[in-house]
Design a protein around this nucleic acid. Structure first.
Length: 433
RNA sequence: UCCAGCGUAGCUCAAUGGUGGAGCAUCCGGCUGUUAACCGGAGGGUUGCAGGUUCGAGUCCUGCCGCUGGAGCCA
């Protein structure tokens, strides 16, 4: 009955002095004798509703002292500006109607362990902190789309069910496809390349799946990746793109999510430092730096978490590392014409020890060479014939990269683990809720 | 798969081999501006499971299960 012309808490500033009805959930409550405070949350914000004995009926006054956490309610009242209230406004309540009394909400206003919170992930999302992280994720994704759309890229979606591995070495999730063995995609990359021949500048954006038994703060088995691919671009072009792209998305999220960064107590001066130019090192130079800092990595070793942390901590902005040993990289990566042992690839490491957020490079565009690589990697040639057509019919130099959304959100938010950066994380042997 | 740590009230944690406690949550009461409000009171336990050592095990030993962190792996 009170459900008429509902106002969102986000917009409450437009209704100062007026009577409004809010709908939401009880976030917390406090009382002080003759005044009761109910914190109401509606998913767009939180506002304190003040219940005074003189303003409301006795049963409503009693209810305001009893209503349990996360009960769903309508509250009617007058919006008042008040400096004592967080957010600047509070609601002087005149009435409250219960939709449902919530009994024994598991997540109390108190510290909880990660195991418990992950079990109640669907409820945990209601908390201030998780709300802020997921909102930043949404704004980041919007900024990513805007960037590519505004730069002349066409969104060309790539399939999630695929007939073969992109990289044979990785473990894939197998799916039974009407009796046929297929796999969940681990990258849109191979499809992006013919798409670039059709549309010039393309990107795909979707979930990817890795059945790796990785149990670290940087790994999920299901994660989101945006992958641009540019026709006639070389390694340097794609590095310039990655640099410009990162500066744009960081600036956009910074300007749109001030409030959320405050909730997370994120030191945003660290993000404000993300400006061109980014430092660029070759793999060989990076190994030298590591050795200077006491890390025993030898030329030819791939970098692990420790190495990425040391290197990225040396700079206040993202670090680009190029020219890795070809043996560390995928079959489709073009070799350096000046040194066959090196790949024309680039990894971008986020600052503050967050590690790799972008991987990419120039693609091998010669048919013969690519056929050889597929053989060397012991990949099923038949599954790649369509891909090889890109090299048969008007082959062209092209480059691209992939950005991991969750690792980027973790960096932006200053989180120690990627599991909080996606609403429902899928991790090693963890798929509930 | 390997290494390490942990498993005690709904939650977060205490408890020298000798009668299992506290804070929060819940319930009862108090307080006219609280900010994870506060103050007083009450209820709440197969100490992950199975075995062993001991007069006596939450505590020591063995196995199993689960969780957390890390490694390997990994655009």
């Amino acid at each position: 009955m009170m459900k008429k012309k509902l106002v969102l808490i986000r917009d409450i500033g437009n209704y100062e002095g007026r009577e409004v009805t809010l709908a939401g959930w009880v976030y917390n409550r406090r009382s002080s004798g003759k005044v009761r405070f109910v914190l109401l949350r509606d998913g767009t914000g939180i506002i304190q509703c003040v219940f005074s004995e003189k303003d409301v009926a006795p049963d409503i006054f009693e209810l305001s002292d009893r209503i349990p956490q996360e009960s769903s309610v309508y509250v009617k009242g007058v919006v008042r500006k008040d400096l004592r209230a967080p957010g600047g406004y509070e609601l002087v309540a005149s009435n409250m109607e219960v939709i449902q009394i919530a009994e024994d909400y598991p997540i109390t206003p108190k510290e909880h362990g990660i195991e418990f919170l992950m079990k109640y992930r669907h409820l945990w999302l209601r908390s201030r902190r998780q709300h802020a992280i997921i909102l930043i994720r949404a704004r980041l994704i919007r900024a990513i789309r805007d960037y590519f759309d505004n730069q002349g890229f066409i969104l060309v979606d790539t399939p999630i069910l695929t007939p073969a591995a992109v990289e044979g070495t990785t473990t894939l999730f197998e799916v039974d496809y009407f009796g046929m063995k297929t796999y969940l995609t681990q990258s849109g990359q191979l499809y992006n390349e013919p798409n670039a021949a059709a549309f010039n500048k393309v990107y795909c954006f979707g979930p990817t799946f890795r059945a790796e038994k990785s149990k670290t703060r940087r790994h999920l088995t299901e994660f989101w990746m945006v992958e641009p691919e540019v026709a006639f671009a070389d390694l340097e072009d794609i590095m310039d793109l990655a640099e410009d792209f990162l500066c744009y998305i960081v600036a956009r999220v910074l300007s749109e999510c001030q409030e959320q960064f405050k909730v997370l107590e994120r030191d945003i001066t660290k993000l404000e430092a993300v400006k061109k130019p980014f430092p660029r090192l070759t793999y060989t130079e990076a190994v030298k730096k590591l050795n200077e800092h006491g890390n025993p990595t030898k030329w030819g070793d791939d970098f692990g978490g420790d190495e990425e942390t040391i290197l990225s901590s040396l700079y206040d902005r993202p670090l680009m590392i190029t020219h890795y040993p070809a043996q560390c990289k995928a079959f489709y990566m073009k070799r350096d014409p000046n040194d066959e042992n090196l790949a024309l690839g680039v990894d971008v490491l986020a600052p503050e020890g967050y590690g790799e957020i972008i991987g990419g490079g120039e693609r091998e565009d010669d048919l013969k060479t690519l056929e050889k690589r597929i053989m060397e990697h012991k990949l099923p040639r038949e599954a790649f014939e369509w891909y090889l057509d890109t090299r048969r019919y008007g082959t062209f130099p092209h480059s691209g990269f992939g950005l991991g959304v969750e690792r980027t959100v973790a960096w932006l938010c200053g989180l120690s683990h990627v599991r909080e950066t996606i609403p429902y994380p899928r991790m090693l042997e963890k798929i509930y809720p």
